[in-house]
């Protein structure tokens, strides 16, 4: 899809600006580009569906929409091998710790897509005593896909937005684990001893 066809470009533009401002050398830059091409074109989802959105996700994989065309079809059941978690369906209090644990079990670089109204804000179940109103309260979310449930086309759109985001990120000095540990230690100096 062309850039004009996407709706919300500000976020990506800001990312690109940041990237240009800090500058990168030619070699690292081109390796980055190669790696990002690989990462963006090989997004393996973690099968994680709690309710209706999961059925639409199955349709995404089925013959009509066929997410295999983009290379998304290698759905892994083990979080260790997945690249992104597409949270499909309401997250309730009992599920919240399980979801966080699943996220923590995933290998870097990892992404989160909030799929459906429930995960974006609690959706129709806002105000219930045991619904987490938006998974961004417990996880860092990269892409929000609204809808109840979102149509498969909407899910594709969300996935393609994620691809765009990955393509402008920087892998070296950016999204890998080493960098995250550095950030983490900068914020929590008291944990430095335990990390060793």
């Amino acid at each position: 899809m062309k850039k004009e066809d996407f709706k919300d470009n500000e976020y990506i533009d800001k990312l690109v600006e940041e990237l240009n401002a800090s500058g990168a050398n030619v070699v690292v830059g081109s390796i980055d580009r190669l790696i990002n091409w690989g990462r963006a074109n090989s997004l393996w989802p973690l099968c994680f569906g709690t309710s209706c959105c999961a059925i639409e996700f199955m349709h995404l994989g089925a013959a009509r929409h066929d997410m295999a065309r983009f290379g998304f079809e290698v759905a892994r059941n083990s979080p260790r091998q997945a690249d992104y978690i597409m949270v499909q369906g309401t997250i309730v209090h009992r599920m919240a710790p399980v979801l966080v644990r699943l996220y923590e079990q995933m290998a870097e670089p990892k992404y989160v897509i909030a799929c459906g109204g429930c995960t974006v804000s609690g959706g129709p179940f806002k105000g219930s005593y045991c619904v987490v109103e938006g998974i961004d309260k417990i996880l860092p979310v990269d892409v929000y896909v609204p809808g109840c449930p979102p149509r498969p086309e909407a899910m594709f759109y969300g996935l393609m937005q994620l691809q765009r985001k990955m393509k402008v990120e920087r892998f070296f000095g950016g999204v890998n684990r080493q960098e995250k540990i550095k950030d983490f230690l900068a914020k929590h100096p008291e944990k430095a001893e335990a990390m060793k």
């Binding site: 709690t50 309710s51 369906g89 309401t90 309730v92 009992r94 599920m95 399980v98 179940f125 105000g127 219930s128 005593y129 045991c130 619904v131």
Partner: peptide, 10 residues
Amino acid sequence: GYIHRGIEKL
């Protein structure tokens, strides 16, 4: 209970 959303109360 991992998707108990409290519909009856709602």
